[in-house]
């Protein structure tokens, strides 16, 4: 890995990696690069009990379905969640760098990394991945949700990125991946004309809404795996609020969907 861009931060794990000659991301591209595994629908929105972040579980390579059991919503630490869209090889590596980096900072500096620093850390990883993005073989467009602990009680926030690393805070919702067009349209409609609006939904309503969103997205996007109670195929759903992160099991999702 090349020297991390920007100013080195004391206690930053990327600085430690650079000092030891290690590195998480390789940007060399071979002309014989294989077909990428990608395509996704991930999204997050504010609801009454915090932020809900969800993702379908399908990975595709070209027109081949690689698996319907992938987890695209990843717990980074006790107060932050990442939803990945794009090339999983790069995205999972970014998640791993963030997990190690955030925990390394918290343990070595005896305080957690602030939310703005976490948001920028992901932007930095995206910028470092720019050569792969420009070559079209390693694009990642993630969503990030973290807990703002500078206010009391702590408030969960949603951020979305462009492939070059620009970060934006989402007011109500954000979506990414090949199925995100459908999701954004429905979320926008629901936010403007729905009753209840996503921000007013309780947990049961929010989960039911989430699963129906994914079912709809899968009807328009072959690369989005839907929800199928018959095969016990559900989404990855994580809730972030002041109490921390909670994952919803397939069983819970099934009962919410039926109700």
């Amino acid at each position: 890995m090349s020297e991390p861009q920007g100013i080195a931060i004391a206690g930053d794990f990327l600085s430690l990696l650079a000092a030891r000659g290690g590195g998480p991301l390789k940007t060399e591209h071979s002309a014989a690069a294989p077909v990428q595994t990608q395509a996704t629908t991930v999204f997050a929105f504010h609801f009454a009990d915090g932020v809900l972040m969800a993702g379908d579980r399908r990975a595709t390579a070209g027109n081949v379905i690689v698996t319907d059991k992938i987890d695209k919503v990843i717990e980074i630490d006790a107060t932050s969640v990442l939803a990945i869209a794009g090339v999983p090889a790069t995205a999972f590596e970014m998640a791993r760098v963030m997990q190690t980096s955030f925990e390394y900072y918290r343990r070595s500096q005896l305080q957690p990394l602030s939310l703005p620093a976490k948001v920028r850390a992901l932007a930095r990883l995206l910028r470092e991945n720019l050569p792969m993005t420009m070559q079209g073989v390693g694009i990642v467009v993630p969503l990030f949700a973290g807990l703002d602990q500078t206010v009391s009680p702590s408030q969960p926030q949603i951020y979305f990125y462009d492939p070059l690393g620009a970060q934006f805070q989402a007011v109500g919702y954000a979506a990414s991946g090949s199925g995100s067009g459908t999701i954004r349209s429905i979320l926008s409609f629901q936010e403007n004309y729905g009753n209840p609006r996503p921000s007013q939904m309780n947990l049961q309503q929010a989960v039911q809404f989430t699963l129906r969103l994914l079912i709809t997205a899968s009807e328009f996007d072959s690369a989005t795996g839907g929800v199928n109670p018959e095969t016990h195929t559900y989404a990855t759903i994580k809730i972030l609020n002041a109490s921390g992160i909670r994952s919803l099991s397939a069983g819970e999702q099934g009962s919410f969907l039926k109700s």
């Binding site: 791993r96 190690t100 343990r107 070595s108």
Partner: peptide, 14 residues
Amino acid sequence: RQAAIDAAHMEAFT
């Protein structure tokens, strides 16, 4: 403490 944390995280990452 720092040496132990550095070593543990490098091992976990690599």
